[in-house]
Design a binder for these strands. Sequence first.
RNA 1: GGAGAGGUGUCCGAGUGGUUGAAGGAGCACGCCUGGAAAGUGUGUAUACGCCGAAAGCGUAUCGAGGGUUCGAAUCCCUCUCUCUCCGCCA
Length: 423
Amino acid sequence: MIEIQRIKENKAEVIEGLKKRGIDSTKEIEQILLTDQEWRDEKTALQKLSANLNMISKQVGQCYSSGEREKADELKQQSVDLKKQESEQKVKVESLQKRLYQTILTIPNIPHSEVPHGKDADDNEVIFEYGESPGKDRAIYPHWDLAKTYGLIDFELGVKVTGAGFPFYKGKGAKLQRALISFFLDEAAKAGYEEYSSPLMVNEESGMGTGQLPDKEGMMYHVGSEDLYLIPTAEVPLTNMYRDVLLPNSDFSIKITGHTPCFRREAGSYGKDVRGLNRLHQFDKVEIVRIETPENADSALKEMIEHVKGLLQKLNLQYRILKLCGGDTGFAAAITYDFEVYSAGQQKWLEVSSVSRFDTFQSNRLKLRYKDAKKKSKLCHTLNGSAMALPRIVAALLENHQGVDGIKVPDALVRYTGFETIN
RNA sequence: GGAGAGGUGUCCGAGUGGUUGAAGGAGCACGCCUGGAAAGUGUGUAUACGCCGAAAGCGUAUCGAGGGUUCGAAUCCCUCUCUCUCCGCCA
């Protein structure tokens, strides 16, 4: 949720920034400013009424204790009318506030200055590339074939037991999952992130806090009997730990990580690109989350990018980094870098990580603040990134490291898998 | 799931209708005292919003959440929620 203060101070800049997302929000922004002013005026009026009422009540009390009953009754009479006014005014203020809030909720985060204009994925900028594709001098199979050949993943069994998008991993496939999770968590720990194992269901407030609700209900599974949501990413529980938190000073850098399964309904995304591991309803992911002061947010983002680069390089995967254009940047993010690995068997790029800065967009909703040097409360900055999502990494590992005598496990992973090849 | 108890400020804890944002204590901060420290002593010690752009100041709201009664609610009533204890069930 964007800070209203920011709109007030930099209206033109906000409108200009949002144009990068391909939206003209002039009308909404004007509406917000107007409603805010109106709300403020009415609120002041309300407070004056309340102050009056409080004063009279006090006097009534004093009259009673000094025995002036008639005067007290008189005052009471007065307050009845005032009270009616007050409650009407209250309704007015509340409805204005609600309207204001609801309009602000529809405004996405303002893209950073370096975010390119553009409307969809085609306008994203490739800013970094690494590695080479395995070449085409021999047959390269897609991962679903390899998974079958080596008995690593059983998609049909998943369909039988649960439904499409819920595969079973087995044997070395299952072991590979576990190895990757441990590898990612250990690397995060080395980089200073504290590991958490979190709840996999969250309540409505948490969904609101990180912005999945109220808009994107379609993304999360909802457990009706308990009114809880299955998490679509560890970002939700990990960030919401800090909901309604006021950090006592500006001397902090909170780095947390956690592995969780992630559940996504992916409603309406059937069709192409869903084959094999490309898009699942349940998958495992290791997430990194940071809570920083505004001053440190930028260097934190850079560190996170370096961290993810390191992971991919240790896994010997060909990858590239995209700076997302305005139109492709998520609602809550101010800037996002996507990491894509090359999937040799499918001959396409697969997104495996997304690293974003949210500035104060999340913390504003979360009420996550800190005290600055002048003891003033300020909103923290939040950042997060996948480090990383497993299925597509698995797909790329299988496809890119396949050879005539099996699939070679990257050296960095061998101590976790306990085997060097899958054959 | 059943029965009971309870949610007050950073913490402990008082408070059953009238200057209670809230006694008292602890902690913390600053000052005095001291050669230095402890003890002692004095002062201060929430958040959000509004009046206003900042500070000071003033106002409003906040005693788990929401609603109600009342001129006035931490205190009375209702609903919800969470925690604790006992019983049941269970990895």
